[in-house]
Computed example of a mutant assay.
Amino acid sequence: MDVRVLGRGPTDPFLSARDLFETEYDLSLPVEVRVRTDPDERTYTGHYADHHVLNISVSAATSAMARELSLHEFAHMHRYEQAHPSHMQSTEEAIYLALAGRSVERRKLTHCYQIANHMKDIYADDITLDVGPADKLVAFLESSLATALAERPVSAPRAWRRLTPASDPDITAVNAAFALALVERHDLVDDDHRLYDLAAAAGSDAPAVSVEQFKARFESLADDPDESEYRKSLVDVTRAYAGGTEQAAD
C-alpha cells in the first residue's frame, strides 16, 4: 500500500494508519496525502483512475485524531475500490427518485445529502472499527452531539465527519440516531453511556423526527447489499426524513 505525503505536515500519522490498515485490508491504487495550510480545510477523499487523494488541513494532520482520520478515509477508498454500492450510488439520483413531484424545504434537501454521507460512513467505519480502536470515535461523537445541543448555531470541528454544520434540531436528531446506530452496530458502549442521554435530548428538540426509527435504519444496513437493495435503503431514508407534499418539487 503506497502512501505519499505532500505538503507541510507530519508523515507519522498517515504511515501509522497505513500500517494498521494493512493488518486486515489493502488498497490497489496509491494514495496521495495533501496537507493543506487552510485550517478550515475539511478532511475528504478524492478518487481518480490511477490514485486516491486524501485532503487534510495541517491542524487536522497534527491533531490527536490524525491517525484515526486517515484510517477512516482509507476505509472509504477501500469501499470505492470494492465498488461497494454505498460508494457507487449517485446521491442525486436517489434523492430525485425519493422526492420527485414533491415540495421539500431547501434545508431538508440539504440535510438529505448529509444523511446519505452518514450511510457511506456506516460502511467505511465497519472497516475502520475492524482495524482500529474505537475510543476516539466515541468521544468525538459524544462531544459533537453535546456541542450541537448546547449551542445554536455552532461551528462544528472540521475533523472526522461533521455531525452538523449548524444545530438544526431535525438533523441533529438524525445525527444522534447515526451516532447510536454506529456504536450499537459495533457494541462500543454500555446502555448507560452519555450518548443515550444526549440522543434523548436531541429527540425531544425534534418531535417530528424519530431517533429510534432512524437509528434502526442506519444500524440495520445490510453488510453486502446489491445495488438495488442499497438504492432502496437510501430512497426510503430520504423519504422518511423529507418526504414533502404531493406537488411540484422546489
Rank of each mutant, 00 (worst) to 15 (best):
D2Q: 14
V3R: 00
V5W: 02
L6S: 09
T11A: 14
P13V: 12
D19S: 11
E24F: 07
D26Q: 12
V31S: 03
V31N: 05
V31M: 03
D40F: 12
E41M: 13
T43V: 15
T45W: 10
Y48C: 03
Y48L: 06
D50L: 10
H52G: 08
L54I: 12
N55R: 12
S63K: 06
M65K: 13
E73I: 11
F74T: 06
F74Q: 09
M77H: 01
Y80W: 12
Y80D: 14
E81T: 10
E92D: 13
I95Y: 04
I95T: 01
A98P: 01
A100W: 08
G101Y: 05
R102K: 13
S103A: 14
Q114T: 10
A116D: 08
N117H: 12
H118D: 14
D121T: 10
P133F: 02
A134E: 12
K136M: 07
V138Y: 03
T147Y: 06
P153V: 07
A156I: 12
P165Y: 05
A166T: 11
P169V: 00
D170E: 15
A173K: 03
A176P: 07
R185A: 07
D187F: 00
D187S: 14
D190G: 15
D191N: 13
D192M: 05
A200D: 15
A202H: 03
G203E: 04
P207Y: 08
V209K: 00
S210Y: 01
S210P: 07
V211M: 02
F214R: 00
A216N: 10
R217E: 14
A222Q: 15
D224Y: 06
D226W: 05
Y230E: 00
S233Y: 04
V235I: 15
R239I: 01
G243Q: 07
Q247R: 14
A249R: 15
